[in-house]
Simulated scan of single mutants.
Amino acid sequence: MKSNKWLFPVIIIAVIIIAGYSSFKGTYNKMVQMQETVKASWSQVENVYQRRFDLIPNLVETVKGYAAHESETLTAVTEARAKLGGMVNISDEVLQDPEAFQRFQQAQGELSGALQRLMVVSENYPELKANQNFLALQDQLEGTENRIAVERMRFNESARGYNTYIKQFPRMIIANMSGFDEMAYFQATEGADTAPAVKF
């Protein structure tokens, strides 16, 4: 009878340990899964930015053939693209560095603004607007800009779900212990809601 006295507390302790381990394991694995979803969304954002990056040289060359004296606008696009340099496909560690993420977003925003100005300038050149190569590039660029908006929204949704999950108690304890950090979000670029001004 005496030997059974310690058996019940041992069983209770074992059940608590197993339940705690199971809960920790499940939460940790869920965090890993959600983090990987955010990284996959980030890869899609990078893919569409890379597509836009690759379209720009052909677009600039086509416009240059018809509107060579719009050198200021063409230079702005070329410089904005050059400034991006290695900032199209970068490490996903930037997602947990708000300052680096802000720099990435700002550089992409500058390129978007320069491309908008280029499209506005092209409206003044009927021959350019009739050029089949330019029209094809313009369609591809518009499609790419739409994809960028969609992929950024998907990224923000996955990042928001992940951030909310790791901030909730008691999961935040596991997240802090295991190095799961908050992810940055894409924000609307300041002035993105206004059309670019073009002077002639």
Rank of each mutant, 00 (worst) to 15 (best):
V45N: 03
G26S: 11
P98G: 09
V48R: 12
E72Y: 03
Q33V: 13
V32C: 03
S43W: 06
A80R: 04
A67R: 07
T62R: 14
G113I: 03
L74H: 01
Q105G: 14
N124K: 15
V121R: 10
A82R: 00
D97M: 14
Y162N: 03
N156S: 04
L111A: 02
Q102Y: 05
D54K: 10
E123Q: 11
W42T: 13
S122P: 05
M172I: 14
A68P: 08
T73V: 15
Q138P: 05
M172H: 11
A114K: 00
K39M: 09
Q96L: 08
S112A: 14
L128K: 02
A130P: 10
R103T: 01
L118R: 02
V38R: 08
T144Y: 07
R171H: 10
Q105D: 15
R117A: 11
G143H: 04
E46L: 10
I90F: 13
G113W: 01
F155C: 06
S91K: 04
R152A: 05
E93S: 15
T62A: 12
N146V: 09
E61M: 08
F134Y: 04
Q140S: 12
T27S: 12
V150S: 06
G113E: 07
M87P: 00
A67C: 05
L111H: 02
R171W: 05
I174V: 06
I90K: 15
E70Q: 13
L55Y: 02
V63W: 01
V38S: 04
L115I: 14
M87I: 01
V38M: 05
R103F: 01
E61P: 10
F104Q: 10
A100S: 00
